[in-house]
Measured scan of single mutants.
Amino acid sequence: MSSSSWLLLSLVAVTAAQSTIEEQAKTFLDKFNHEAEDLFYQSSLASWNYNTNITEENVQNMNNAGDKWSAFLKEQSTLAQMYPLQEIQNLTVKLQLQALQQNGSSVLSEDKSKRLNTILNTMSTIYSTGKVCNPDNPQECLLLEPGLNEIMANSLDYNERLWAWESWRSEVGKQLRPLYEEYVVLKNEMARANHYEDYGDYWRGDYEVNGVDGYDYSRGQLIEDVEHTFEEIKPLYEHLHAYVRAKLMNAYPSYISPIGCLPAHLLGDMWGRFWTNLYSLTVPFGQKPNIDVTDAMVDQAWDAQRIFKEAEKFFVSVGLPNMTQGFWENSMLTDPGNVQKAVCHPTAWDLGKGDFRILMCTKVTMDDFLTAHHEMGHIQYDMAYAAQPFLLRNGANEGFHEAVGEIMSLSAATPKHLKSIGLLSPDFQEDNETEINFLLKQALTIVGTLPFTYMLEKWRWMVFKGEIPKDQWMKKWWEMKREIVGVVEPVPHDETYCDPASLFHVSNDYSF
């Protein structure tokens, strides 16, 4: 037999072997998808029940369902290793196997995995149920939502704001400190077992692309791009910072340095994350009609249902689908009040099986009107990829998912749209002054938050990498806050605090 014939037969044999492996992989994935749908849905439903009704029974049910899901994933991840990716030609099959071969938290021992889940659930519970009591009246206690958040959004009393700011960190942050220390250790162990340098590197892996249509993007490039983007917006932020400082000097004349940092408790919310609520103090042309339409919403008797129905109309107007019937029947759109304790931070849920929901303790404000559009943007994205195989139902990356939500809320905030839905009067006219007011309001929300987020994530990356010793977490946190964000702590904090974890995203294990 000629050498060319042998070569042809060899190629046929290799192709047949690849085809056999690929067919086996497809069969394996079909079985996995069928089983995963049910187990993931049960786990998601148990998590939803806990988040909307925080009880010991629900946390136990959530843990049990989560353990079943984790055990299943660990088993299936091991089985998926049997299919070598280099022998799979079908890109859809390869991407699913690649996702499943990534072990995630299931790489930890059973004891450590359970401990990590306990830590995460405990931190979430402390954050959502933590109360601050009035020292003069111990029976008068406030949760973060709505009590403390209400103070931080609306109060102009310097000392009341300081009390709310400090009490939240003292009551909740200190409880979270030992848990967060354990969390860092276990998450790093999980990341390294998955061949990442640390948990920050694991997060950045979400943005990594290897040879898809000839395109590559590394975790290191992400760090470079983040640094570059921050340097680009820094001059604009510094101008905004100086303008806000001048306006705060008028409101709090004896508390603000004309050349120094801004006190952290005066920036519009509990964390200084969004400066939106400073608009009334900083509006350049106050004689113009108010483009913050909160009062109009209240006057027109809007409620949470109306807010979300208007958001749905907005999405339908640009060619996107209505929310499902189940969305309206199962979402929690208002604070249950004293009936039950719930996690009030707005979140969009894709539970699986076409079950999409939003959890939000909606208030009738323009801020929540825009947040509703943001969260519904997440749901629209979830619905758009719902037909994909189970392992591919995700956003391109976390940042893109947020961008989908944010672009919709930005569009909904324009005076033209607000006028079209009757929240600005029919005779409202846009001119240079109203446009400047609008742009300032947008800058308070968007530009003001960028250094906050950059600095927070930089601190977390450094902590996970071990570049900040545990006994210097708070020292470095406030050094970076002053240097990068231009914000100063109103009272000193020692290493018993854990100020970063006083933010939902940190205590609940979300990256930005």
Rank of each mutant, 00 (worst) to 15 (best):
H34N: 13
Q42I: 00
K26V: 01
E37N: 14
E35I: 06
L91R: 01
W48L: 10
L39N: 02
S19V: 01
M62W: 12
Y50E: 13
L29I: 12
H34D: 15
N61D: 09
I21S: 11
V93K: 13
Q76C: 01
M62I: 11
N33L: 13
I21P: 11
Y41L: 13
E56P: 03
L79K: 10
T27H: 00
E22Q: 01
E37F: 13
V59R: 05
T92W: 00
D30Y: 12
F40H: 06
F40D: 01
Q76S: 04
E35T: 14
E22N: 11
P84A: 10
E35M: 01
L45Q: 12
Y41F: 15
D38M: 15
A25F: 00
N63Q: 08
D67S: 03
I21E: 12
L73A: 11
E35V: 00
Q102M: 02
L73H: 09
W69D: 11
Q102Y: 09
D67I: 06
E37L: 11
K68T: 10
V59N: 05
K68S: 11
Y83V: 01
D67T: 08
D30Q: 12
F28Y: 02
A25M: 14
F72V: 12
L73W: 06
M62V: 11
L79D: 14
V93F: 11
M82C: 00
Q42W: 15
Q96N: 11
A71V: 05
N49H: 02
N61E: 01
D30S: 12
M62C: 07
W48Y: 05
N51Q: 09
F72I: 12
E57F: 03
N64C: 07
N90K: 00
L73G: 10
T27A: 00
Q89I: 00
D30C: 12
Q89V: 01
E23V: 02
A25S: 09
T92Y: 00
L91G: 01
T27V: 10
Y83D: 14
N63P: 13
E75D: 03
E56S: 03
Q60P: 11
M82I: 14
Q98H: 05
V59M: 04
L39M: 03
A65V: 02
K31L: 12
S19L: 10
Y83K: 15
W69Q: 05
L29W: 14
Y41K: 15
I54M: 10
Q102A: 07
L91E: 06
Q98W: 02
A65D: 12
N63F: 06
A25L: 14
N64Y: 09
A65W: 00
K68I: 12
E56Y: 04
Q98M: 02
D38F: 14
Q102T: 02
Q60D: 08
K74P: 14
E35R: 14
E35Q: 02
V59P: 14
Q98L: 06
F28S: 15
H34S: 01
